[in-house]
């Protein structure tokens, strides 16, 4: 069971305080968009063995959403950061690179 630090209220708490929200940084496709793009937005999700970016909500705490950069294989947490960003910030990218030099980068 994971321990995560909520960047909004600063609490490091166990997983039971949080609710998972799936893959982070999805781009929303709306009215008029291409069928394939919309279908991918709805249904296609990354499932990497390794570095992954996720959304979590501090459901039993401050109620705020945030992002987590995590390794799905080892459960290592590289960092947590604001939900109000559409790509991982530089410091998170650097933190991942430092631990996973072979990581191909955020795509």
């Amino acid at each position: 069971m994971l321990m995560l630090k909520c960047p909004n209220c600063g609490v490091t708490a166990e997983e039971t305080e949080f609710a998972p929200g799936g893959e982070a940084h999805l781009k929303r496709y709306t009215a008029g968009s291409e069928d394939q793009a919309f279908s991918d937005y709805l249904f296609a999700r990354k499932n990497p063995r390794g570095v992954h970016f996720e959304r979590w909500r501090h459901a039993f705490g401050c109620g705020k959403w945030f992002h987590v950069a995590r390794c799905t294989a080892t459960l290592e947490v590289f960092g947590t950061y604001s939900a109000q960003t559409s790509t991982p910030p530089d410091n998170i990218i650097a933190a991942v690179k430092a631990k996973r030099p072979d990581w191909e980068g955020f795509k």
Binding site: C9, A13, T16, E17, F60, G61, C62
Partner: peptide, 10 residues
């Protein structure tokens, strides 16, 4: 102050 849960309750 801590917002958390007590058993199953917020």
């Amino acid at each position: 102050i801590r917002r958390s849960r007590i058993g199953q309750l917020v």
